[in-house]
């Protein structure tokens, strides 16, 4: 084999090996690298109660309620399988909507109750002018 071809094969093998290693590592890290917990993860593996975590999902329609003190809100974060009530005191981001994605930073009081100290609105991948949106934006998926 000519030296040139040898180098070609060597580099191709190296690239394939690197690619394989990365794909393997990424799928292995799938759970650790997740930026937030989904409500159904909480069922599968209950999170530690004493450390800050993020909870992400869709805000259930009609679940947003202002509490008596005027600054606290309550709403329900849900995915396909499970729902968790969240309590938050502070200013919600502009893009926070019922039926839209949200990531709450805070901690679990127990398996059924989450207290957030920060709320991030999660945007989805759909972009369209308002007149077209109609009621399409009422559904969405957080994976």
């Amino acid at each position: 084999m000519k030296a040139k071809n040898q180098r070609l094969v060597l580099i191709m093998v190296a690239v394939v090996a690197m690619l394989g290693a990365v794909l393997l590592a990424m799928s292995g890290l799938k759970d650790q690298a997740a930026y937030f917990y989904a409500p159904s993860d909480v069922l599968k593996s209950p999170p530690a109660l004493d450390r800050p975590v993020r909870l992400g999902g869709m805000v259930r329609k009609g679940s947003l309620k202002k509490l008596a003190d005027g600054v606290s809100v309550r709403f329900i974060v849900e995915d396909e399988a499970h729902a968790i009530p969240v309590q938050f005191k502070g200013i919600l981001p502009d893009l926070f909507r019922e039926g839209s994605g949200v990531v709450a930073e805070g901690r679990f009081l127990n398996n059924q109750q989450f207290v957030a100290d920060n709320i991030l609105a999660k945007h989805d991948e759909r972009y369209m002018p308002p007149q077209m949106a109609g009621d399409q934006h009422k559904t969405g998926r957080v994976s």
Binding site: V15, V22, F36, V103, K122, D124
Partner: peptide, 26 residues
């Protein structure tokens, strides 16, 4: 330069494989 390219599939698939704040692929 060749080895650094392993970051490219990570960037691309990060929103598909991991839960991220960043929205998915449009």
């Amino acid at each position: 330069g060749l080895v650094g390219a392993i970051n490219l599939p990570i960037i691309h698939y990060s929103v598909l494989w991991w839960r991220t704040l960043h929205q998915g692929q449009s």
